[in-house]
């Protein structure tokens, strides 16, 4: 009993439920192929004559798609509790984005000062 409470490994664990058979290995290699395809599309776009705003937008979307594939399939987040998914989304993605978004205006201001000097 004590060991159970102390280590906490025998608790109900939803992510343990996912099937560990050949099916999931197929899923991993399908993910691999999708990631590879996205990478190639991104590289091709980078050399293609695409307007810069569109390029940035498409690349960012493709990047997030790759992140979702890796986190969801390789790291099993799609089987995990919603709380863990939000830990990842809010804790990492939104926090990092917040940091960047709130320092961008200062960078633009400094650039304006340097350019107009």
């Amino acid at each position: 009993m004590k060991g159970v409470v102390r280590r906490g490994v025998t608790m109900t664990d939803r992510s343990d439920r996912f099937s560990a058979g050949g099916e999931s290995v197929r899923l991993y290699w399908a993910t691999w192929a999708a990631l590879l395809a996205l990478t190639l599309v991104m590289l091709l776009l980078d050399t293609a004559p695409v307007a810069r705003p569109w390029l940035v937008a498409v690349l960012l979307v493709a990047m997030l798609a790759k992140v979702a594939l890796i986190a969801g399939n390789f790291m099993h987040l799609r089987h995990a509790h919603a709380g863990l998914v939000w830990t990842f989304i809010a804790g990492l993605l939104i926090t990092g984005l917040t940091l960047y978004v709130l320092i961008v205006p200062d960078a633009l201001r400094i650039r304006d000062m340097l350019v107009n000097r």
């Binding site: 608790m11 995990a80 990492l92």
Partner: peptide, 22 residues
Amino acid sequence: VCPFAAGWQRVLMWWFIVGDGL
């Protein structure tokens, strides 16, 4: 039973990943 339905090892690893990712 954790709100995340995951043992401490997984929870700890995910928070480490969030921190290291940041």
